[in-house]
């Protein structure tokens, strides 16, 4: 059972040396499947970080399930209760085994995972559990990373170039998995530079010069 998710960005601004995001508006709820495309340096990852509550913003309003997100506050609880991250570079801790990497969120959450076996089965990684992540292929690493992202049953999956380092077969596997999770009711926000992959989603946005264009 996926929890309700309702996030709304309105007029979000972010600058470093120069403006990166200008007046971003975006709504995401359960069953949303959104991709954001854009060139390198267009601010895609910044937007993803803001959406994922790991980076602050300079202006605008961000509501996450009716919580107004404020700058400088730590939203780790909202993160582990609602968001699963999938990264292009997997971000698995190399000193740990696959099992330990997957179970890592449980160290920081009191929430019980009732679906570990189901996740492992659906991702076909049972044989990898006791291996160190350093010996895995890119596709295997990404499946382990997805398992970690799904462990706490998130209502939102944020995927930053999840297929960026994968071959076509593994790319297809990952996209199928995301689609499957989306159909369960999870919202999926995927960042990609690949237009073909972007078209997999229900809604495609292009980020250009800091402005988010809808229905690209």
């Amino acid at each position: 059972m996926v929890k309700d998710i309702n996030i709304e960005l309105s007029g979000i601004k972010k600058s470093y040396d120069k403006p990166v995001l200008k007046d971003i508006c975006l709504s995401v709820t359960n069953y949303s499947y959104v991709t954001i495309v854009g060139k390198s340096g267009s601010g895609k990852s910044t937007l993803m970080n803001i959406l994922g509550l790991i980076e602050g913003f300079d202006g605008g309003v961000y509501r996450f399930n009716n919580t107004v997100i404020k700058k400088g506050k730590d939203y780790s609880k909202l993160r582990y209760e609602n968001i699963g991250f999938i990264f292009q570079s997997y971000n698995l801790i190399p000193t740990l085994t696959c099992r330990e990497n997957i179970m890592l969120p449980l160290v920081y959450s009191s929430k019980q995972s009732g679906s570990f076996d189901e996740i492992i089965e659906s991702l076909d990684i049972a044989d990898l559990l006791d291996k160190k992540v350093t010996v895995l292929s890119g596709g295997e690493k990404q499946r382990v990373a997805i398992a970690r992202a799904l462990l706490l049953n998130p209502s939102l999956i944020i995927a930053d170039e999840p297929t960026g380092n994968l071959d076509p077969t593994n790319t297809r596997t990952v996209l199928n998995l995301l689609e499957k999770e989306n159909k369960k009711g999870r919202a999926v926000i995927m960042i990609t530079h690949d237009d073909t992959i972007a078209r997999e989603a229900g809604k495609v946005y292009r980020l250009e010069n800091g402005v988010l264009h809808e229905n690209y």
């Binding site: 994922g52 790991i54 730590d74 780790s76 609880k77 993160r79 582990y80 209760e81 968001i83 991250f85 971000n91 698995l92 801790i93 000193t95 890592l104 969120p105 160290v107 920081y108 959450s109 970690r148 706490l152």
Partner: peptide
């Protein structure tokens, strides 16, 4: 720092 970054991203509190 990488490890800390990952742990924080998956929801670890600063106190943890």
């Amino acid at each position: 720092k990488f490890e800390i970054g990952v742990k924080r991203a998956i929801g670890a509190k600063k106190s943890s």
